[in-house]
Write a protein that binds this DNA or RNA. Structure first.
Length: 441
RNA sequence: GUGCCUUUAGCUCAAUCGGCAGAGCGCCUGUCUGUGGAACAGGAGGUUGCGGGAUCGUGCCCCGCAAGGCACCCCA
């Protein structure tokens, strides 16, 4: 240190550095998600990380307390985006004349929440969203579910379930059971914990929110039923026949479930689960959540229809639906099960050189790069070849080329497989072909 | 924002009742000026998370802070 007080190197709670091995894995996952999104015709989008606070607030409900907010240098009240859905609504409202509707976009980017960290939960984390704005059709919701299932399958998740519910249907169930409409959000929150705290726990929680116990039990009877979606919905149609709006919610779900098979979503990947409510206040219709059981990190993705969000900016309603995958949680699952290769380096071949072969080695490295390989040319010709190979092996580089004087003299180089230790000498003009044989993929 | 647990070498951990901070692995050097991983020999590496207090004396006791984890809240 050149004078002065030494600073402490540290990062904020819930924020992390991503070292190369981590970045390589994250990049692989993101690439696969992007491929699925684009295969479905979703267009890329990015937005500022900071927005006017007014843009961000008002629709996240209680979650606003987790929002990073501050006053910028110009005295503006601003916040770090809390999700990618609200910025999308803002974009749709601002750029409606530049977009063709239904507008399908994907957005892979970091968001910030001042939550308490634990496994798979950070203050800065990445969401991978795919949304459709400008379509009220259940076909849009079906495609969102299909994209979600395909994306999770694309990174090899062995077991996941997409639970499907409906916000307004849940509200109707509440009304039928005698839960006042203004208690709806308490109802959502309590019911959502069914699998966690059990029936009695949910009843206790609802009673605590001034919902009559009899109503609470009635809600649970209707919500906890399991079985084929068609028969469950039919049963509910009977129970809710008096409740205004239930017919529409029920028919939306029927349409959705009817469409899913045609969209190629495997039957064992989704189920109707009316106990699913989801916390975000802006959902207005079908809601989805993807969960895994190992490791125990709960949901890896959430989704739903939010028909009023764009209207909050535009004054006229624009229906929209979409889904969001949590990159960090999916990374946890991928690592836990070893679903994708965990390479420590992007380099495919190391070039070891001697003081007398620096130029020849550099030239060969250039040629190999032009041939499409990721090449790590040694910068230490004075170190022994042993050291150079050792370093390459430790970095996890699978192959090495040794450019020595004797080989060069006869127009050859040595090619070594650093994993097996096998080595051969190959003519200079055959190196690329030999490398291609050696390297995986 | 709340409660509980944890924090000792790069990593995993040990250290009796409060009494000289250690091991394994890893790392570096050498055996070895052109072939890594092995073996052998040697070596470096510590403000015991940070700050304060009590004590003749603390890694160990007390207080505060920070970070990580678990649970709550909420959520990806």
């Amino acid at each position: 240190m050149a004078g002065g007080t030494q600073r402490t190197a540290r990062v904020l709670k819930g924020f992390r550095d991503y070292l190369p091995e981590q970045m390589i894995l994250r990049g692989r996952i993101i690439r696969r998600f992007r491929e699925v999104f684009e295969r479905h015709g979703f267009e890329p989008l990015d937005t500022p990380t900071i927005e006017y606070l007014e843009v961000l607030t008002g629709k996240a409900g209680e979650n606003e307390k987790l929002m990073y907010r501050f006053t910028d240098h110009g005295g503006r009240e601003v916040g770090l985006r809390y999700d990618l859905t609200v910025p999308l609504a803002r974009v749709v409202a601002m750029h409606q004349n530049d977009l063709a509707f239904p507008f399908k976009r994907y957005h892979i980017a970091p968001v910030w929440r001042a939550d308490n960290p634990q496994r798979g939960r950070f203050r800065e984390f990445w969401q991978c969203d795919a949304d459709i704005a400008g379509s009220a059709s259940m076909l849009a919701d079906a495609e969102v579910v299909a994209v979600m299932a395909e994306a999770l399958a694309a990174v090899g998740l062995p077991e996941f379930t997409i639970r499907i519910s409906h916000r307004r249907l849940l509200e109707c169930i509440g009304l039928a059971a005698g839960v006042p409409a203004e208690r709806a959000s308490s109802l959502y929150r309590a019911v959502d914990k069914l699998d966690k705290i059990g029936r009695d726990g949910v009843v206790r929680e609802m009673v605590a929110y001034e919902i009559p116990e009899a109503s609470a039990r009635r809600v649970l009877d209707l919500v906890a039923a399991t079985g084929a979606p068609e028969s469950l919905l039919a049963a509910l149609a009977y129970e809710l026949s008096e409740v205004q709006g239930s017919e529409e919610a029920l028919s939306e779900l029927s349409e959705l479930f009817a469409a899913l098979p045609a969209f190629g979503v495997p039957e064992d990947r989704y189920l109707l689960d009316l106990a699913l409510a989801r916390g975000l206040d802006y959902y207005t219709g079908p809601v989805f959540e993807a969960t895994v059981t190992e490791p125990k990190i709960g949901s890896v993705g959430g989704a739903g229809r939010y028909d009023d969000l764009v209207g909050g900016f535009l004054g006229r309603p624009v229906p929209a639906t979409g889904m969001s995958l949590g990159l960090e949680r999916i990374v946890e699952v991928v690592q836990e099960h070893g679903l994708l290769p965990a390479d420590r380096t992007v380099a495919q071949v190391a070039v070891a050189i001697f003081p007398a072969t620096v130029a020849a080695g550099a030239r060969l490295a250039s040629e190999m790069r032009a041939a499409g390989f990721n090449v790590d040319l040694s910068l230490q010709p004075n170190r022994s070849v042993g050291d150079q190979l050792k370093l390459a092996g430790r970095q996890g580089i699978p192959a090495a080329i040794i450019v020595g004087e004797s080989e060069i003299a006869e127009g050859r180089v040595s090619l070594k497989d650093l994993r097996s230790g096998d080595q051969e000498t190959v003519p200079r003009d055959k190196v690329a072909a030999a490398l291609r044989r050696l390297l995986p993929g």
